[in-house]
Simulated assay, not measured.
Amino acid sequence: MRAVAVVGNPKPASRTADAAQRLAVALGADEVELIDLIDLGAGLIGWGDERVKAAVAQVQASDLAIFASPTFKATYTGLLKLFLDQFATATGLEGVVAVPLMLGAGPAHALAPDLLLKPVLVELGAITPAPGLYQLDSAYIDDPKAAEYAARWSPVIAAITAL
């Protein structure tokens, strides 16, 4: 399964990027391509930037897309929102299995991936067969929730991506 990790952290090479790549591997990805949105810079603000178009096409060609963001002001970052705006509503992520992943400082925002990010992915046409995953950014490496999540949902994601 070919996966892409789309990371909306304004810090390059972030813990969010690492967590997204780890999750993709745990879910069965053979290869994980990283789209660190901060690298696309001002191209995300307008329309027609070639690097942004290539990133959109990369996501659309993947079997699995992990959409990852740190929790900023109780939601995902504006950087991720700018990228998601590049996709056509209802069809932009058609056929792509998507998993929302958010990292935060405390458990107060644990529902953010499902309440805030997942509905946007569904609106763009993504297949979202699993709940989102929220992890503490200070403990994501050793967090058993990621392994439990992968054990529960990787068979579902593998079955859907094989269709």
Rank of each mutant, 00 (worst) to 15 (best):
S154D: 10
L117G: 07
D63H: 12
T16R: 00
V4F: 01
I141H: 03
V122I: 12
T161N: 07
A159E: 12
A5Y: 08
E31A: 05
P155R: 14
A13G: 09
T75I: 15
R51T: 12
V120R: 00
L82R: 01
E94T: 06
R152L: 13
A17S: 11
S14M: 03
I66G: 03
D114M: 08
E123Y: 02
G78C: 13
D18M: 00
P70Q: 08
A110Q: 06
V99E: 08
A55G: 00
R51W: 00
W47L: 12
T75W: 01
K11G: 09
T161F: 02
P10S: 02
L37K: 00
Q21R: 13
E31V: 04
I141A: 05
L111K: 10
V97N: 05
A108I: 05
V6T: 12
V59H: 05
L93F: 08
G8D: 09
R51M: 13
G48I: 04
S69C: 11
A54W: 11
A42M: 15
D85P: 01
P113A: 00
V120N: 01
L121W: 03
G92K: 02
L121I: 01
G8K: 09
L37D: 12
A74D: 14
L34G: 07
W153L: 09
A146Y: 00
A5F: 08
A158D: 05
A29D: 03
R152H: 13
L82D: 13
G43S: 04
G104V: 04
A61R: 14
P155H: 04
P155A: 11
F72A: 11
E148R: 08
P12V: 13
A55C: 12
D36V: 10
P70E: 08
L40W: 04
A158M: 09
A29I: 03
G132W: 11
F72R: 13
A147V: 05
V4D: 05
